[in-house]
């Protein structure tokens, strides 16, 4: 029983940390995009607009919880929760310091990530379906096709990295010593993996399920207030989560100078790495325009998946003969 209580406290603390992270990620994104666009960004609420997320949260919570008459109510309410939950659940297996996973060390950490990200698309699809709106439906259809397609290269690269590390546990993976050439080989996969991540998290330039230019807001056109905020939370927490996964897989997670000796340094290093990756997300969003849907799918099936297969094959050969 006390063990369960500890887990519960751990989970609540983790959720709070991640959700605070979400709030300040929106602030960071608005500030950064403003700088990219020769603007100032939020600067009214608190010093440097730091209270802006709080103001937004208050606003979202006090909005009327309006449910349009033409929707499938049960699914409509369920969808934002289904979108948000997986983004938080993935955190359970991520190591945040030496030997310390966020929740627990499971020996199938990789499969956990793949399985949970697979569930994510349900929230989006159900939201589009239940809204009973053409924009939402189109957004959901795009999302279904896009997320499922990009999960394939994502999985291929994940499997390659698991093979190289020789373990399915993220905690062990980070602690596995690696040769410099191995690091270089892994970093070659980083651009591909990151591209898949962009598509998987529906971030620009692959934000086709929610393209405001064509589909108004895509799958969450009919949502407002807190339910809308939950979709936003899902998107941003996904960004944080996937950034953490990427830094764990490609950049040694919590590792850094002296992190072995002082355990508290682990989260700090992880934070810095995640921040750098989040900056990359935002930078891309502010800089490039969006491909068309058919171009996006063609890119996946004709380039990303073959590239993933090649990478997988070579990694397998390396694992067998060089390790």
């Amino acid at each position: 029983m006390p063990q369960l209580l500890i887990y519960l406290i751990q989970a609540v603390v983790l959720c709070l940390v991640v959700i605070t992270g979400f709030a300040y990620l929106t602030w960071l994104e608005r500030k950064l995009i403003a700088r990219f666009q020769v603007r100032i960004g939020p600067n009214r609420a608190g010093p440097f607009g730091l209270l802006q997320p709080a103001a937004d949260a208050v606003k979202a919570m006090f909005k009327e919880e309006y449910i349009p008459g033409h929707v499938d109510k049960f699914v409509y309410v369920l969808a934002p929760m289904l979108a948000l939950a997986p983004a938080l659940i993935v955190w359970a297996v991520i190591p945040i310091a030496k030997g310390v996973p966020a929740m627990g060390d499971v020996n199938i950490g990789f499969l956990w990530i793949l399985a949970i990200t697979g569930v994510e698309s349900f929230g989006v699809i159900l939201a589009g379906w239940s809204s009973n709106n053409n924009y939402s439906l189109l957004g959901a259809l795009r999302s279904a096709a896009q997320m499922i397609s990009y999960e394939i290269p994502l999985g291929l690269f994940l499997v390659s990295i698991a093979m190289l590390g020789g373990t399915f546990s993220l905690v062990e993976l980070v602690e596995t010593p690696r040769a410099p050439w191995e690091w270089i080989w892994i970093w070659i996969a980083f651009p591909f993996f990151f591209t898949s991540i962009l598509a998987e998290t529906n971030r620009s330039p692959f934000d086709l399920p929610e393209t405001e230019n064509e589909l108004v807001a895509g799958f969450f056109t009919e949502y407002g207030g807190m339910k809308f905020s939950m979709f936003m939370m899902a998107e941003y927490i996904n960004m944080i989560t996937t950034s953490t996964v990427v830094s764990t897989l490609f950049f040694g997670g919590w590792q850094g100078p002296l992190a072995d000796r002082y355990i508290w340094l682990g989260p700090v290093y992880l934070f810095i790495k995640v921040l750098a990756l989040l900056f990359l997300f935002i930078w891309i969003r502010a800089s490039i325009s969006r491909p068309r849907f058919d171009q996006l799918m063609r890119f996946n099936w004709k380039f990303m998946i073959p590239a993933g297969l090649v990478y997988l094959t070579v990694s397998a050969v390396i694992t067998v003969f060089l390790k």
């Binding site: 666009q37 603007r39 620009s204 934000d207 502010a286 800089s287 490039i288 325009s289 969006r290």
Partner: peptide, 10 residues
């Protein structure tokens, strides 16, 4: 084209 206002603001 989906370039999120950056070129427009420039």
């Amino acid at each position: 084209l989906g370039a999120l206002q950056t070129p427009a603001l420039y």
